[in-house]
């Protein structure tokens, strides 16, 4: 007799636990307000990335097309995987002195691991992260970017 009661108890408890689970799932089924999917390409306009999101490394320029990079090469040394390559040139300043300046700041997005060491160690805060995350291109070569814009100059007062 005991064993029969035990047997029935087992069945009832088992079915009860299953019903409880089904209650949870069916509640979700009937509450479409809880859907978390974001319709991505449609919501592009309203999509705001968090401001610290590491999308890609950029070099902010001001409206006079000036940046802060002195071409010191510290970011290149600190990058763990050779993503950054600095090509510098020698310019002659107004007072006639020779000075090293940035020619090309090459950034290979395809290799970057977003460790933020370059941004953090740059002595003149010339680099920053942008929130752009749509990086897909048809050609790998397009991922090699030159961060200083053509014709840009060193910002006044940055050494």
């Amino acid at each position: 007799m005991r064993s029969i009661i035990e047997y029935l108890r087992e069945i009832v408890l088992g079915i009860w636990s299953l019903l409880k689970g089904m209650k949870v799932t069916s509640t979700y089924f009937f509450s479409p307000g809880k859907i978390v999917t974001q319709k991505y390409p449609e919501n592009r306009k309203s999509l705001v990335m968090l401001e610290r999101f590491k999308g890609e490394v950029v070099m902010p320029h001001n409206e006079k097309n000036e940046h802060k990079c002195t071409g010191c090469g510290i970011c290149e040394i600190n990058c763990p995987n050779g993503t950054i390559e600095i090509i510098s040139k020698v310019i002659i300043t107004e007072d006639g002195k020779k000075k090293k300046a940035i020619d090309k700041h090459i950034y290979r997005l395809g290799m970057c691991t977003f460790c933020a060491l370059c941004v953090k160690t740059c002595p003149s805060n010339a680099l920053a992260f942008s929130q752009k995350f749509e990086h897909a291109v048809f050609n790998r070569a397009l991922l090699n970017k030159i961060l200083n814009k053509p014709g840009s100059q060193l910002m006044k007062g940055v050494e």
Binding site: L50, F53, T113, F114, A116
Partner: peptide, 23 residues
């Protein structure tokens, strides 16, 4: 999302550095 807001990365946070935190 909390990670992304503070560290900038979601999974691979890289938030520590010797001597403290990145930000």
């Amino acid at each position: 999302d909390i990670f992304e807001e503070t560290c900038g990365g979601r999974m691979l946070v890289s938030y520590n550095c010797p001597g403290g935190l990145m930000y």
